[in-house]
């Protein structure tokens, strides 16, 4: 298998006033092409920080991220914006991830327009994307407050798919939705991942969900990776004390 992403020794410390808080403390992992990797852990363990570092929304203090063997953290200006053709993200709160003053269609087309695609072409692609996420075409002209959470999250997935990325990071993409909608969104993600041959980094705190979808799982605790393995392995035969606690608290 081809290596898609390699993160090495990532460190990030936040300061609340003068008190330091190390959110990510030397995290290394790699992802293969077409892989679905789960990242689990309690809230505050640094999962979202990792997602934000991989997408360059925040800068780490140390470490390196290689995408196809190319250093991501050094990219600047236009090259940095090109990174977003390869890596996309789906956020936790669907409604807040769309500009309240712009229609869903505008949001989905934004990346296409930014790549210089003309309006007619972008619209064509928009309809393709809406079909892919099984949304009616009329949703293009709706505003985020006019649709349900599940519909909005589908639109967010369409937006993430728009540039044709190799990796989509889902940062708790289903935790704001109710259970039945969660299942639909997850099925959709799984289907798309297989169809498009892309990789998924699924950040969540729900072990059952990870077991259902992921090829591999990373367990994170206090900014460190505790354990990595196939979900069944990790859940049935946890090696570390923290993983045991996490598993026992759910099952």
């Amino acid at each position: 298998m081809e290596k898609l992403l390699e993160a090495k020794e990532i460190r990030k410390t936040f300061y609340k006033g003068k008190i330091p808080f190390t959110a990510v403390d030397g995290v290394s992992f790699s992802m293969e092409r077409g892989e679905c990797l789960g990242l689990v852990g309690e809230s505050g363990c640094g999962k979202s920080t990792i997602a934000r570092i991989l997408t360059r929304l925040i800068e780490p203090d140390a470490g390196s991220v290689l995408l196809h063997g190319r250093e991501v953290l050094q990219l600047k200006g236009k090259e940095k914006r090109m990174l977003y053709h390869e890596v996309q993200m789906v956020f936790q709160t669907p409604q807040d991830s769309f500009d309240p003053r712009r229609s869903l269609g505008d949001g989905i087309m934004e990346s296409l327009r930014n790549r210089g695609m003309n309006r007619a072409k972008a619209k064509e692609r928009l309809y393709e994307l809406l079909d892919m996420v099984e949304l009616d075409r009329e949703f293009a002209s709706r505003y985020p407050h006019e649709v349900s959470g599940g519909q909005c999250q589908r639109a967010a997935i369409a937006r993430a798919l728009a540039p044709g990325p190799r990796l989509i990071i889902c940062d708790e993409a289903t935790s704001a939705l109710d259970v039945t909608v969660q299942a639909q969104i997850l099925k959709l993600l799984q289907k798309l991942q297989r169809e498009q041959g892309m990789s998924l980094l699924l950040i969540c705190h729900d072990l059952a969900l990870v077991q259902l979808l992921c090829d591999q799982v990373l367990v994170m605790y206090k900014g460190r990776i505790e354990e990595r393995g196939a979900p069944d392995e990790v859940i049935c035969r946890p090696q570390k004390e923290y993983t045991r606690i996490l598993v026992n608290s759910v099952f």
């Binding site: 993200m89 990346s111 967010a156």
Partner: peptide, 14 residues
């Protein structure tokens, strides 16, 4: 810091 600003950034907007 709203998520939609992050999303706009991820869409490649300068």
């Amino acid at each position: 810091s709203a998520p939609y600003m992050a999303a706009a950034k991820l869409s490649g907007s300068g």
